[in-house]
Design a protein around this nucleic acid. Structure first.
Lengths: 356, 356
DNA sequence: TTGTAAGCGTTATCAC
DNA sequence: GTGATAACGCTTACAA
């Protein structure tokens, strides 16, 4: 069933059918109705490929995600779902492209085959080959995260530097003097992953400004690693009373080790950081943290992209978000360590620690 | 840059360029080389829309996922990533369609606009409107999960009934007499979600076969709910020594409540079930469970779909997988409850429970 | 071994 | 207000 068949049945030309559907030319109410009835009866829908060829646009965008091998974090998953939802509001479909390395089949296929009108890039690195490739191709794109060259291109990002800095100040304000940062994995830092780098910078600068004793460590993106990290950290630096984390995937493990060590939160150890809201709420006790505004970021990214597609010559907009710290229950003023020695976790009940 | 321009520069006709690229007709080595060089210099790639229009196929498949509102579980996320990866191996791109309800814009747009060559349907219900719609459209599709009418359509699914049954038998073999099932949310059961239904059936049947005291409860898909469920369950049925779970998202909460209640795993409570491998490994202690073979299922689903696309008249294949239970450390023979009374969780150290 | 030309199903530009 | 008709860029008989 194609537009020609509809035209024949309705006794009009193909162009009239097309215009009756698009409204780009006035069609008499009578013929319009007739056409619509025929279309309805036949269950006709325009062929997307033909339309794309004729219009020169596909009504589709690509979402470039990290490759399947590297497990996606829940935050990333959230982005995928939110971007798809936001795109749907603009009648845009979403093509998924798992692309990490340089040699990428799917990415290249999508870009150079003109399969999409624009691209949303996730997990952008400070130096990003995909961003460079896209710039060269002239295809509109917006990044979630930004490259070292913040001035060019469209992007929406979180102000990790400021956010982590705020966390440090929050702990300092409560009276903590020795704090630690649990950052994303070491290889992220090494490979120039912006959030990891900026988290470290923000942590170091704020800690220096407040004259705090600061320890920054990297931690793989999973619970087991989080468990080990916290354990090692507290063994090596027993004076630490505050932790700020940029690693949400490590959170369940952190909770586990703290409990095993008999360190009450926030009684003996305060924890804060920047993580997805869901993780903050599932932490025990609920985590005082800067919540990553996932769907907000996705909406803005799609909005920026839609704007860019419709006017490619327009200004390149950047959106840097600094969500506030949501006060929940995981931070408090530090307490004297002597009250409950973590070196002896199994000595009788921990009641006095838990309630201190 | 289009095929005509390449033809002109190489001094041949457009068809020769096309054939040089597709190999569907022999082209002399000399002209072939010349064409390829020109293509390379110009950075030419065939336009996907034009090709789709001419060939009548889009080289794209759709992956229908639950809508954004309902948070995707990590297993579902795993499917998305794995399907995309598997599709890539077949040079297929993946269009994401978040579709749950009946009236779905994106789903309809993709199906009736012929945007894809085939569809993979996730989270199929026993009665599924999308499956019905697809059957009516004639578009090849394979479901992950199967409808009540198991005989028709292509699908790959887990044998939840058998799997949960195996878990029950495993506990019975160890000597457990009173067990419980932590199932997916109540509304899933009510709305005819196959895995929830079949899990319940398998549990009930196997428990009856072994003359066990069995309690089945539903639990929302999150940690906090898991915490409450286990707490209520053990309060209401103190005799329970074994739990089988079909709900991986509740696992972290279950772990938490068990620890708080002072019930050692597997010392006092054995836990098993069917969950994603990652969750089983992150549980504490590592969970003895039937691991959901996510990427295997995704590979098979894509394989089935590719086969169906190339020969739509072929047989409708079904794949029912029954992965084995991976023995880890969360099950053991039951122990006399009197040794460690859970009603008094804070009475001194729990050492004797933990090591029992 | 290669070229010509007829589609594929739309949209959009001209006429009337 | 409506109908021809030419793109859009590619694939693929059909000829040569």
């Amino acid at each position: 069933m194609n537009i020609g068949e509809i035209a024949k049945r309705a006794g009009v030309s193909r162009s009239t059918v097309s215009y009756a559907l698009s409204g780009k030319r006035t069609v008499s109410e009578a013929t319009r109705r007739r056409i619509l009835r025929v279309i309805d009866e036949a269950g006709y829908r325009p062929n997307a490929s033909a339309r794309a060829l004729a219009e020169g646009r596909t009504r589709t965008i690509a979402l470039v995600i990290p490759p399947a091998g590297r497990r996606l974090t829940p935050i990333q998953l959230g982005f995928v779902a939110s971007v798809v939802a936001a795109a749907g509001l603009h009648e845009l479909d979403v093509l998924l492209s798992p692309s990490g390395g340089e040699h990428d089949r799917s990415f290249e296929r999508i870009i150079s085959g003109r399969r999409v009108d624009g691209v949303i890039l996730m997990e952008v690195r400070l130096q990003d080959a995909r961003a460079a490739r896209l710039r060269e191709s002239g295809l509109p794109f917006v990044a979630i995260g930004h490259t070292a060259d913040a001035g060019t291109g469209c992007w929406v990002d979180l102000d990790y530097e400021g956010l982590i800095g705020n966390c440090v100040h929050h702990l300092a304000d409560l009276g903590h003097r020795a704090i630690a940062l649990i950052n994303r994995p070491q290889e992220f830092l090494d490979s120039g992953y912006g959030p990891a780098r900026r988290a470290l910078d923000g942590f170091t600068a704020a800690a220096a400004a407040r004259s705090l004793t600061a320890t920054a460590i990297c931690c793989p993106d999973d619970a087991m690693a989080g468990e080990a990290c916290v354990e090692n950290l507290l063994a090596a630096h027993p004076a630490i009373t505050g932790i700020v984390t940029a690693n949400e995937a490590a959170l369940p493990g952190m909770e586990r080790s703290l409990r095993r060590l008999g360190r009450a939160v926030p009684g003996q150890i305060s924890i804060t950081g920047v993580v997805g809201r869901h993780w903050a709420e599932e932490f025990h006790p609920p985590l005082t943290a800067a919540d990553v505004p996932i769907s907000d970021m996705a909406d803005r990214a799609v909005g920026l992209l839609v704007e860019r597609i419709s006017s490619p010559a327009g200004p390149e907009r950047h959106i840097l978000l600094t969500p506030p710290i949501s006060l929940r229950s995981s931070t408090a003023p530090p307490v004297q360590r002597a009250e409950c020695d973590p070196a002896l976790p199994s000595q009788g009940s921990h009641a006095e620690c838990l309630t201190s």
